[in-house]
Amino acid sequence: MSQSFNRGTVEDFGRWREFSAGMWAWIFHKFTGWVLVGYLFTHIAVLSTATQGAELYNGTLQGLEALLIVRFLEVGLLAVAVFHILNGLRLLFVDLGVGLESQDKSFYASLVLTGAIVVASIPTFLGGKLV
């Protein structure tokens, strides 16, 4: 063998049409995980205004909440968090060796449940005065 052809890892995500439930669950879990850890840092940064007194804190929080885009981003954050929680529960069961045969169904269930919870929460998130 003089040389061999390495097809690299490009095919991994180029072949997304061929992914199965477990693979999608992993991708979504990882994506939501990145979002959540990113949010954690941002969250603490925003809350840090509390050290500068009530005026700044209240002004910042209410100023952000007054923006419609922030409200939508919060719905997105809820979706991300709920999915991460539900799929996380699924993964805990997988780690305990419970229900491995129905891991695909539990993934679909967590997707559907996430959707339902998010839709049900939209009024609460978008409602309330936008000042």
């Binding site: 199965s20 477990g22 693979m23 669950a25 997988v94 780690d95 060796g97 491995l100 891991q103």
Partner: peptide, 21 residues
Amino acid sequence: QTQFSCTEVCPKDIPLTEHIQ
């Protein structure tokens, strides 16, 4: 990462993920 890809493709139906877990 319990993606279950291995378990799904195994031609001898070995529950690989279960064994790893």
